[in-house]
Design a protein around this nucleic acid. Structure first.
Length: 585
RNA sequence: GCGGCGGUAGUCUAGCCUGGUUUAGGAUGGCGGCCUCCCAAGCCGUUGAUCCCGGGUUCGAAUCCCGGCCGCCGCACCA
């Protein structure tokens, strides 16, 4: 725990992050990020984009959607029903249980298999009373069943009945915009949509610093593909990468040790489809490059009852931390067509893509023809709009009536069966509609940032510093005149301005001893330090120092930017020095 | 939400048990200056604390009691 304490102290003192609303006592689960924290987060986000989005930009696009969405979205997504927990407490020992789980388990013990899916609090209470279920811990009587919804609720506009919710995942904004996004990519598939943004969950008890926040940042991709063709065109690029994986079947046996398989093996053994394996391989590489070695990562298969309501298969990417043990930094879910189907059902909007058949086939098409007389009877002059709405949702209308229902809502109109004629026609086509399936990798930025900090912490002798990867370090370089002398200071300040203009984050300091300034820079993970000394004013050279080895070389002032750029790109200190013809010190 | 422990300058911490020389002490940091030419050196000055909040006990509370907030640990929860 000593290392954890050292890290905590640096985080507080150097203001990476701290509890929000502190002067009013603070609220659990909310944190502010300071200047260094913001920069570190931004760099991690950019690295994520460089890993998951930019290389595949012909396939994966990026959007940004609102944090607040209206109630129907979460009705359709299942969050209003499934994001609610029913909790029941023992009146004697005070233990709390998930009411639905408790009822199912207790009745299962008595050989009664029932599903509590969709039951209300009152119905659960009735079951508890009926079957005389008591506290499994102490046998005491159970109290009232209370419901707890993890969605933050708010109202949109001045009318309180217009409910809105803070999104619990960025995904829904993407699903809801699916028709437009599909149009943007020319209705080709597969395609993916990335989103980085804030989400909120009203957690019962936030705990563990950044590990369980009520508001946090997600980096997600919804990858839409044809379930009949689950091939990932870029799979060859990752198939050799290793994935430490504990597949479901081993989790079920109680195994926690991962198998180290290549992405190819993971897909071949059916542990995940190519798309999931693709993202998992990239995720493992991403965390590795952030400083978390593969041996401290694993992808844990989720058993059916552990999965979210929308998921047919899930892996949690876990990393081993000193402070919290194994924590989930990303979730990889196979969401099937759950979300798009749900939104299609609730909104009436079509969520199809088309696949081309190898040979044209004759299909029966159910066509809908509006019955103007019947429509005018009910809607009068608005007949034009109604007909337009019916035409736009022809397939949906046909399907609904096909199921034998007598009315259907399209847009703001209720269309009854008598308002349309339904005709079955035969047609040749080589297109077939389908609702795409979705594979979703979802990353928690805040947790990743913590894991990165913990893994970066280095303690050597009396020295404590952050060995952050150069491309995520919040500050790129420190500029330090060896002493505070006017000509050194001037050179230092102008170098600072020059580098800043070129897009580097620069820390300038001319106060105190050089040793303590090096230490202060190392402590926040600045990879390089430039020192201006007696040679600088005469020959225009400076020394540049490597954070990890404290090794120094001498380069020309005009090469500093090149050196920084190389190191930020991943070139080692020695290689950068060699490439620029640096002189040993 | 339950139980245990904790909360003193930016940071770390002494004092609390045993209430009163404590205008709450130290270290480190910040700021100004001196000195300083390579890995947290020295000197001078200065700045720093709602002792978490509220209430109670008492002549007197950082200190004792109660409630709350926040944090840590365990249990529960984490769709």
């Amino acid at each position: 725990m000593r290392r954890v304490e050292l890290l905590e102290e640096i985080i507080k003192r150097r203001l990476l992050y701290w509890p929000s609303s502190e002067i009013y006592g603070g609220v659990g689960g909310f944190y502010d990020y300071g200047p260094l924290g913001v920069q570190l987060r931004r760099n991690i986000v950019e690295k994520w984009r460089r890993t998951f989005v930019l290389p595949f930009q012909d396939l994966i696009i990026e959007v940004e959607t609102p944090i607040i969405m209206p109630e129907p979205v979460f009705k359709a997504s299942g969050h209003l029903d499934h994001f609610t927990d029913y909790v029941v407490g023992c009146t004697k020992c005070g233990r709390k249980y998930r009411a639905d789980h408790l009822v199912e388990e207790e009745l299962a013990k008595r050989g009664l298999k029932i599903s509590t899916e969709g039951l209300s609090a009152a119905e659960l209470e009735r079951l508890i009373a009926e079957h005389r279920i008591v506290c499994p811990n102490c046998g005491g009587p159970l109290g009232r069943v209370e419901s707890f919804n993890l969605l933050f609720k708010t109202t949109i506009g001045p009318y309180s009945e217009n409910a809105g919710y803070l999104r619990p995942e960025t995904a829904q904004g993407i699903f809801v915009a699916f028709p437009r996004l599909a149009e943007y990519v020319g209705r080709r598939h597969p395609f993916g949509v990335a989103q980085i943004g804030r989400v909120a969950r009203n957690e019962i008890s936030p705990r563990g610093g950044l590990m369980r926040l009520r508001e946090f940042t997600q980096m997600e991709i919804e990858l839409f593909f044809d379930p009949q063709n689950p091939k990932c065109p870029y799979f060859a690029e990752v198939e050799g990468l290793e994935i430490p994986i504990v597949p479901e079947e081993l989790v079920a046996k109680g195994q926690t040790e991962p198998l180290f398989l290549t992405a190819r093996e993971v897909a071949a053994r059916g542990y995940a489809n190519e798309w999931m394996a693709f993202f998992m391989a990239l995720a493992a590489k991403f965390l590795k490059e952030l400083g978390v070695p593969l041996e401290r990562q694993k992808f844990l298969g989720k058993l059916p009852h552990e999965r979210a309501h929308y998921s047919a298969k899930s892996y949690d990417q876990m990393v081993l931390t000193e402070r919290f043990g194994w924590v989930e930094v990303s979730g990889h879910a196979y969401r099937t067509d759950y979300d798009l189907s749900g939104h299609m059902r609730h909104s009436g909007r079509e969520m199809y893509l088309e696949r081309r058949l190898p040979a044209p086939k004759e299909v029966e098409v159910v066509r809908i023809y509006p019955n103007p007389n019947a429509i005018r009877e009910k809607y009068g002059d608005r007949i034009g709009e109604v007909i337009k709405a019916i035409k736009e949702n022809e397939a949906y209308v046909a399907k609904t009536f096909g199921e034998g229902r007598q009315e259907v809502t399209v847009g703001e109109y209720i269309v009854t069966r008598d308002m349309v004629f339904i005709k079955t026609e035969k047609r040749k086509t080589d297109l077939e509609k389908f609702i795409p399936h979705v594979v979703e990798p979802s990353f928690g930025l805040d947790r990743i940032m913590y894991a990165v900090l913990e893994h970066a912490l280095a303690e050597e002798g009396g020295r404590v510093y952050l060995r952050l990867p150069a491309d995520v370090a919040p500050i790129n370089v420190c500029i330090l005149p060896i002493v505070k002398r006017q000509d050194y200071v001037e050179i230092g300040r102008s170098l600072r301005r020059e580098l800043a203009t070129e897009g580097f984050l620069v820390w300038y300091d001319d106060e105190g001893t050089i040793g303590s300034r090096y230490a202060a820079c190392d402590e926040i993970g600045v990879p390089l330090a430039v020192t201006i000394d007696e040679r600088t004013p005469t020959d225009g050279t400076v020394t540049i120092r490597d954070r990890d080895t404290r090794k120094q070389v001498r380069i020309g002032l005009r090469d500093v930017a090149k050196f920084l750029a190389a190191v930020r790109k991943g070139v080692s200190f020695d290689e950068a020095a060699k490439a620029l013809g640096a002189m040993p010190v």
